[in-house]
């Protein structure tokens, strides 16, 4: 039967140098990875910066017009 022909396939040996390539691949993987602490510190810093910006925007709302006594309408003789 056709499928029995697959039984004639012999087991092959891998190249003896492959492990060196794997070790190099693992080293590259380690170099590429960002440490968890660094990732969390970056996220926390960016979030804090965003919150500070929002707080600054909220506190600065309409304060300019109050300071300079600006009229809110454009009618001159009201």
């Amino acid at each position: 039967m056709t499928l029995d022909k697959f039984k004639n396939i012999q087991k092959s040996e891998i190249s003896p140098f492959l492990f060196t390539r794997i070790e190099q691949g693992i080293r590259n993987l380690k170099d590429q990875k960002i440490p968890t602490k660094t990732a969390w510190a970056t996220v926390a810093s960016l979030s804090l910066l965003l919150l500070l910006n929002l707080a600054a925007l909220n506190s600065a709302k309409n304060t300019q017009s109050d300071t300079f006594n600006l009229s809110y309408t454009n009618l001159l003789y009201e």
């Binding site: 022909k5 004639n8 396939i9 012999q10 087991k11 092959s12």
Partner: peptide, 8 residues
């Protein structure tokens, strides 16, 4: 495929 002999 190194597991296949030349004749086959």
């Amino acid at each position: 495929h190194p597991g296949v002999i030349m004749e086959q």
